[in-house]
Nucleic acid binder design. Structure first.
Lengths: 146, 146
DNA sequence: CGTGTTCGAAACGTCCTCTAAACATATATA
DNA sequence: TATATATGTTTAGAGGACGTTTCGAACACG
């Protein structure tokens, strides 16, 4: 399970060094392949095995439903395989970088089954938003069974 | 189960010495690893085993729900492992200190399954707030089955 | 009232991990 | 063959992590 936050920077070639902590998780619980896709104004990175499960589920959904088509057109079509190189870095395709507004500074966000990649400036906004959302959703949160 | 209140202070490197009482609880009922995360303007510290249960539950929730994403972005992404060192201290990462407004003085609050860490000034306010809240919530309190 | 013990705070000092940047090599394309 | 793009390697140094010791205050006990 991914958790924790890390501040990294792309190198001149658009490569992002994955934090050692995540690398070790990947090495011990998964393989070293990540699938990265676009969503919510940031990038979602999944270990291959997790991604396959999700893809499988999407494939079972009614293919003519609007929300399914939309999901496929954004979430599935954006997906790119980004294997870790020998220095523990991943190369982020330009299209994904553009989508997420990533130029150099990236905040890596451990989010249980995925890692989110945010352009630093966007993350600040989103984090505060999420926090106030949690306050406003007290009851719904309680409903989650935690 | 954690209970009681303690007033401690960080050292120059941001380390917090955990009260002996909590240390002994950890040693006898858990292992010596704590997961610390940010919530409600303070820090929540869980024994690893407790944390894993919560994380597990979060992983089972619908990942596209707003409240789940918010929870992951605040609660899960804030989580850092803070093992006890040989002097019974934990190192609080700067990001967590900032979040909780902790500079030096910390109030450690035993809260059953977790320990809360508060910046002293905030704690005073929150404690009084909780007190009046208890008065206003007589009925809801009764509904808890105690 | 004095003594001893426990525990937290402070002050040092060292080690070493990790990232980022720079450099080098390979591969592909024109 | 030359140039651009992708991939790999190396290095340095900054920052963080960790351990130890000493001091002092608080407390308990005789």
């Amino acid at each position: 399970m991914f958790r924790g936050r890390f501040e990294h920077a792309l190198d001149a070639k658009g490569r992002l060094s994955v934090p050692v902590y995540f690398r070790e998780l990947l090495a011990t619980h998964y393989d070293e392949r990540l699938i990265v896709t676009n969503f919510d104004g940031c990038l979602w990175a999944y270990p291959m095995a997790e991604w396959m499960e999700i893809e499988q589920k999407i494939a079972q959904l009614p293919q003519f439903k609007e929300e399914v088509k939309a999901l496929q057109r954004v979430f599935v079509s954006g997906a790119a395989e980004c294997p870790l190189d020998k220095a523990g870095r991943i190369l982020l395709p330009p299209a994904l970088r553009d989508y997420a507004g990533i130029l150099r500074e990236v905040t890596l966000v451990g989010a249980t089954r995925r890692i989110e990649l945010w352009a630093r400036e966007r993350w600040v906004v989103v984090f505060n938003g999420a926090q106030s959302a949690l306050n406003d959703m007290g009851e719904r949160l309680a409903g989650l069974g935690l």
